[in-house]
C-alpha cells in the first residue's frame, strides 16, 4: 500500500513541559479512511495540528503525498484539507465569502462553479448569502467542511466531525465521506463516536497518552480482539449455576432467567457444542438464544484500560 501521509518518530513537548506525543510513527494509506481513536487529551488533535502546520513538532518528520511538511510545506499543505474540532468561523461573513477565502488561501484561483457544487452537495446553497452567525450548529459544521473542500484536497482531516451534530446530519456526513473516498480522497478522522469509526473506517489507530498503541484493519481488529457472547434465556429460573457447568464460566443474571457464555471467536474450539450438551444433560432448557459480538467501543475501552 502507498503511504500518502508518513509520520516518523514525531514527538511534541510543549513549553510547559507537557509531552503530548511520544515517538509517533504511522503511515496512512492512499485512498483509505483511517480512524484515530483515543480518549480526551490522548494527542489526536495535536498530531493532526502538527501535520497541518498549526503546531510545530519537537522531533520527527512528516510527509504528505511525498512532500516534507516543513521543507516543502507549500506542496504538502496544498494537498491537505482540515475540518477542525471547534466551530471557528467568521461569524459576520457570508457562507460564500468565507468559502471563497479558503479556496484562495490554499492557492486556487476563483472557481464559482466548484464552490457552488460543494455548497449544493452540503445542502448549503440556499444559505450562501447568509451570515454564518445566523446558521445552526449543524450548518456551521457543514460550512467548515465546505471550507476544507474548497481547494480540492486529496487528504482530508476530520477532527471530531460529528461533535454536536444531530443523527441525520451525521448520516449525511458519512455518506459524503464515502463519496469523497470514492473520488480518491484519503480521509483521516478522529472521533469519540466509536460507531462512526465502526461504520466508516478501513483501519483504526488507537492513541493513548501520546502513544500509538495499536494500528489495525478494522475488520481484523474486531476479529482478533472481538469477543462473542451467547445469552440463553432459560425456560425455568435457576438459583445458582450447577457444579456440573462450573467449568464453562457462565454468568447468571436476569433473576436466574439468563445464562451468558463468552468465547473467543479466534479460538480453535469455542466450546459451544459442549456447553449445549452439558445443559441438556443437566436438564436445563432454554426458550431463546441471542449472540452478541464486541463492538469497536468495547475493544477500545479494553485496550485503553489495559495500557493504563
Amino acid at each position: 500500500m502507498t503511504a500518502i501521509v508518513s509520520i516518523s518518530d514525531v514527538s511534541k513537548t510543549y513549553a510547559s513541559g507537557f509531552t503530548a506525543l511520544k515517538n509517533i510513527s504511522l503511515d496512512i494509506h492512499k485512498g483509505e479512511i483511517f480512524a484515530l481513536l483515543g480518549p480526551n487529551g490522548a494527542g489526536k488533535t495535536t498530531l493532526i495540528n502538527i501535520i497541518c502546520g498549526i503546531v510545530r513538532a519537537s522531533t520527527g518528520h512528516i510527509s504528505a503525498d511525498g512532500h516534507d511538511i516543513i521543507d516543502d510545506y507549500r506542496k504538502a499543505r496544498f494537498k491537505i484539507g482540515l475540518v477542525p474540532q471547534e466551530l471557528t468561523t467568521d461569524a459576520f461573513e457570508t457562507v460564500w465569502a468565507t468559502v471563497t477565502l479558503s479556496r484562495g488561501l490554499f492557492g486556487r484561483g476563483q472557481n464559482p462553479a466548484h464552490i457552488e457544487k460543494i455548497l449544493k452537495d452540503l445542502s448549503l446553497w440556499e444559505k450562501k448569502d447568509s451570515k454564518i452567525m445566523t446558521l445552526s450548529g449543524g450548518m456551521k459544521r457543514r460550512v467548515m467542511i465546505a471550507k476544507a473542500l474548497s481547494h480540492e484536497p486529496t487528504i482530508l482531516f476530520l477532527d471530531e466531525p460529528s461533535a454536536g451534530v444531530d443523527v441525520e446530519l451525521r448520516r449525511d456526513m458519512w455518506e459524503m465521506v464515502r463519496s469523497l473516498r470514492a473520488n480518491g480522497v484519503t480521509i483521516i478522522l478522529t472521533t469519540h463516536y466509536i460507531e462512526e469509526a465502526e461504520e466508516m473506517a478501513d483501519r483504526v489507530g488507537v492513541i493513548n497518552k501520546g502513544e500509538i498503541i495499536l494500528v489495525e484493519e478494522k475488520q481484523a481488529l474486531m476479529r482478533k480482539l472481538g469477543k462473542k457472547e451467547i445469552t440463553l434465556e432459560l425456560a425455568q429460573p435457576i438459583s445458582a449455576i450447577p457444579d456440573s457447568l462450573a467449568h464453562h464460566k457462565l454468568e447468571l443474571s436476569g433473576n436466574g432467567h439468563e445464562l451468558t457464555y463468552s468465547y473467543d471467536t479466534q479460538g480453535e474450539r469455542t466450546g459451544i457444542t459442549t456447553l449445549l450438551q452439558d445443559l441438556a444433560q443437566t436438564g436445563i432448557r432454554f426458550r431463546d438464544l441471542n449472540t452478541k459480538q464486541s463492538s469497536l467501543e468495547d475493544i477500545f475501552v479494553d485496550l485503553v484500560r489495559e495500557r493504563s
Binding site: G53, F78, L105
Partner: peptide
C-alpha cells in the same frame, strides 16, 4: 481571537 487563524497557519502561504 475567534480561532480562524488555524486556516492561515495551515495554508500553503509564506
Amino acid at each position: 481571537f475567534i480561532g480562524t487563524i488555524y486556516e492561515i497557519l495551515s495554508a500553503p502561504i509564506s
